[in-house]
Design a binder for these strands. Structure first.
Lengths: 216, 216, 216, 216
DNA sequence: TATGAATGAGAATTCATTCAT
DNA sequence: CATGAATGAATTCTCATTCAT
């Protein structure tokens, strides 16, 4: 066998191995998403992930060092795409009020289409991993379109409202219009007047193009 | 020793014992408050309470059956008085807007005066144990003083906002005016116009009469 | 109950507890001595100590953090007294040759009276925890009673010889005179002439007064 | 393709395979030598050999069944030649004292030229795999050139001294003359008088002819 | 033969709970 | 009622071994 041939074989083995590994990792992450969504970030034991993913204990440790590491990885895996996706969907939309309002509506639409994701984000979300669209907010404040006694209060109110909304949606206790209602209420909280809110709510929801179909 | 004397001794012993027991229980509850505040409701182990309270494992079990029971007891011990206290302080104040606004300000004042309590409530609070002042809200809605797309959304937004606020306050990251700012923002979220908000904020904070000085 | 009485009770509880704890610890150490002697310092698993000591896993961890810590503790517990004991027994004996020779004979006598101890020391001994009687050696060298090409070589030869001797004794493959034979050979290795060696071997073995009867 | 051609190809493949296999095995053995030298015979895990040899787990098991088997193989691979080599080098040298002394000096020279080997032998050596030159010792005793209280003591002292010496050399804590010093001291331990020792030490070290250049 | 992901038995460790004092 | 040592089930984590590619 020539060196070239051998190298090709080696590459093949390596590639196949890596693919299998990646598939297993995805399986674990998908399972983790469900488990964290159901039980929160602290309660679950390794065995729950192992059982949910249908793998062995050993395999778990081949991929993640601890539940903490898994939580981090799941967070990243889960929220990474979404915000970018929304960003893209909002491309070409002008005006902070419209942009922020539509962004919220899109976000809640995602939540309503995936309760597991919704619960997971609600329970695990820590500031920083999933940011609010700071730019639109700041611009809106400067233009006088948004009003708030302080940035901290504004951020906390929006953040808390979204988290509670995700809990409700994830729990299956939300009506179909709930996402839009909460979006409207958030705009009202920012001091936007009713007419503008109505405009935002009437606006057609931009199409979301998934970056790529993530297998789950 | 006569029967009477014995009985008297026994009574004395019993009384002393009960007092000692009550004091121990208070010590445990106060410690639990700190521990739950720092670590949330799921993470802490029995030993953390034992260490924080400066007692032995055995003593813990003499008072509480499990961490769950302790959590419940701590919740009740902690929040039981407060809402009634606020209720009392608001006695005589008229108008849902003013009542709700002042109630919020009082609530945040309490939070800012006790960070441990603040964190505890933020982390442990589950719907039901600490209710929003439903009556004022409903009345305000009926009178057209509050506006919201739906009661669910309204409740979630307020609830979430308060929780985030408590987290900030408990973490020590809030300015002195933060409580008032958040109160104002909540009113704005309910559709109250700026003039009315200003009135509420200018209003003197009613005096709070502690039901009894709880030793901690 | 008076404060004094209570304190007395508390003290009593504390004392009883500490005594029980100390007894358990001794039990573990004694078991560890056997286990390490049989299996060496690396091989044994926690369960072997647990089984040998007749305690539960949990109890083991109440006393020692790891096998490593247990090894250290066992070493200290085991060798601490001996060298001091020998030191005391040699009190009043003059001359490095006589002192060193009798010290060796006493050491091997101890080994032959306790095979488990012998094997343990042989396997676990690391330089430093159980020192050779440096002072006698140095004095002997200065007086020209001992001869060696270098201190390092001398130390290594003696150290290695003693270790091998302990292995043989611990294994039960030593004759009754073996300890004395090895002592004599060590003196010969140090360049002591036969007549002097004979004197040392004829000398009565000083009585060893155990510092205190250690229960085992 | 003709049968002949095919056969030739097969032969070629086979030969290449065998060579590759032999090379891999050597790689594993060389790595094992280092690992055992550093960690002793009990502590190391399969992964350490795998990592040190730069191979995969699977490959390890293609060559050795267990750590025990590897240890045996490494011992044989490592010490097999040496003693025969020394034997050859001593060919023609007369007299037990001279032969034994020069043998020791050669042995330590080897140790000082290869610290890894030195540590490995020190840690792994168990009686039997690497024998002392019994014949010279017995002859020396019979001729009255060596003196010892008993054969056991003599063997143990020499054995222990050599092991300690190897540990020092392997650890890099030996001076350049250390090997010779220890050799001289061993002779002194056997009761050889200084003049004879001096003769042995002055004697030129016989040339060692490596049986074959062992690739490592 | 070489690879390395997957496996699961077994070893280490934690922690809620009991109980004699 | 208070104490804290002991317990052992539950859990975490390791590592020798297998096996499809």
């Amino acid at each position: 066998m020539s060196a070239t041939a051998r190298r090709r074989t080696t590459d093949h083995r390596t590639r196949v191995g890596r693919e299998r590994s990646a598939r297993t990792e995805t399986k674990i992450l998908a399972a983790a998403l469900r488990v964290f969504a159901e039980r929160g970030p602290d309660a679950p034991k390794i065995d729950e992930f192992v059982a949910a993913a249908g793998i062995s204990r050993g395999t778990f440790y081949n991929h993640f060092d601890s539940v903490g590491a898994l939580l981090t990885a799941t967070s990243e895996w889960t929220t990474g795409e979404l915000l970018r996706t929304i960003e893209v969907a909002l491309d070409g939309i002008e005006g902070p009020v419209l942009r922020f309002g539509l962004g919220l509506r899109l976000f809640f639409a995602k939540a309503q289409s995936d309760h597991v994701w919704s619960l997971f984000v609600a329970r695990v979300w820590k500031m920083g991993s999933l940011e609010l669209p700071v730019r639109d907010l700041e611009e809106g404040l400067q233009l006088g379109l948004f009003r708030a006694p302080s940035p901290d209060a504004m951020r906390d109110l929006l953040f808390g409202a979204v988290r509670e909304a995700l809990l409700r949606i994830g729990g299956g206790h939300a009506s179909r219009q709930y996402g839009d209602e909460m979006s409207a209420l958030c705009l009202q909280a920012l001091g936007v007047d009713s007419r503008r809110i109505a405009t935002v709510m009437r606006h057609a929801l931009p199409a979301v193009v998934p970056a790529e179909a993530v297998e789950r």
